[in-house]
Design a protein around this nucleic acid. Structure first.
Lengths: 224, 224
DNA sequence: ACCTGAACACCGTTCAAGT
DNA sequence: ACCTGAACACCGTTCAAGT
């Protein structure tokens, strides 16, 4: 928006998503990226002054997409709920997007606007600015954390399976056997009851989001 | 506990904390670590098979410390509140501890035990295992995110000041000027009202924690 | 304006060889 | 059991030089 993308600048961003999908953010390198585009590594530096700034541009692309996908509807609670669900859906469209947003301080144009949109949903509520800001950051962090955990779980899972041909659940249970059962009794029970398969599901996401929104609601009620 | 630390193994861990405090987790390298201890880089690999496993050991040290600092007292709400506050306090004792815990899947002994301890606080509540687990993960993630944000803010701040001799607040306001004011009106108002100085304070931490706990409370009430 | 080759100053990790 | 030197296969980034 504030800067028209040249063909090649867009090309770098496009190839970056491809590389992130292939190798993940840990193994992302400027050399591999250049290779994918068909140029030499130093050429990228003509478009982005550093890897950091490239990542920021990627993060901002995601933020912009989230912003575009958001449409206010219903009361503040329904709005925040929809915003969070929409944000998660958009994050899932881009590889490693949660990491990118986490690594970027929210001082980019579209990221700021996204936060502003979230803030607008609770603007009329009888809360202090401090509260409003803090609560919105909590909701956004919740969505990001959820995606981060999901990503990490998938990583360890595929890594484990390619190495030992064991599922993560099997391995977890094996780990538990080495720890005195009484010391982790509750978590042990949960895992043997098949809780593992539920981690990261839509239901879990909505359930965690719900306590956040109910918590905010209580604060609203308390101060009106 | 399950493995007696040799003098040098403890020495590696000790030096690791020193290096993390000096350089941060991004610039942590095995070579610098070796240098700090007074050995060659490959020697570290006798104690820890990889950088990853060294980080896991560090994370587990933090988890153990949190566990030791926790003492159940009061009802479930007071307990969770104290646990979160204690966890934050312990995280602040170690440099980059939040990053270390975030990077580590909770499958280490002491980390598991820590989660179990949190779970114990809400064990008697009339909630499903799924809910209990999810809510506790939310609380733990909240504490970690809060520390992460704080760390990131400090990083950018010192980086910015050494480069441009500007404070983060000045720079943020400058960024705002480049964005159409109407599009970020709320966040703009908040920043000009001095909200910036409040980010990351104890008060903010407790305020966010509170909506989580109240949210859980509502769920308890709803299902009893 | 856009791209390259060569180079700098680093990485994590392996491994034969030393004591 | 513990440590080293040398080496492998990488990094991000700079910069003079090309077109």
């Amino acid at each position: 928006m504030n800067k028209k993308l040249s063909v090649s600048e867009a090309r770098v961003l496009e190839a970056s998503w491809e590389l992130l999908a292939q190798d993940g953010i840990e193994k992302f390198s400027m050399r591999k990226l250049a290779n994918l585009i068909g140029i030499q590594a130093p050429s990228i530096y003509w478009y982005f002054k550093s890897k950091q700034l490239l990542f920021q541009a990627l993060a901002n692309q995601v933020a912009k997409d989230i912003l575009l996908a958001i449409h206010p509807q219903g009361d503040w609670k329904e709005q925040l709920h929809d915003y969070a669900v929409t944000m998660r859906k958009q994050l899932q469209q881009y590889p490693c997007s949660a990491q990118l947003l986490m690594q970027t301080l929210p001082l980019e144009r579209d990221y700021l606007q996204m936060i502003n949109q979230f803030l607008q949903a609770i603007e009329p509520l009888p809360l202090s600015d401090k509260q409003k800001f803090n609560y919105i950051i909590c909701v956004i962090n919740y969505v990001l954390c959820h995606e981060l955990d999901e990503y990490e779980r998938r990583q360890v899972e595929t890594e484990l399976e390619s190495e030992t041909e064991q599922s993560l659940e099997q391995w977890a249970l094996h780990v538990f056997e080495q720890v005195p059962a009484e010391k982790i009794s509750i978590i042990h029970r949960m895992y043997t009851n098949g809780l593992f398969a539920e981690v990261g599901t839509d239901e879990m996401f909505v359930s965690g989001l719900d306590i956040l929104l109910r918590g905010i609601e209580q604060k609203v009620i308390a101060s009106s």
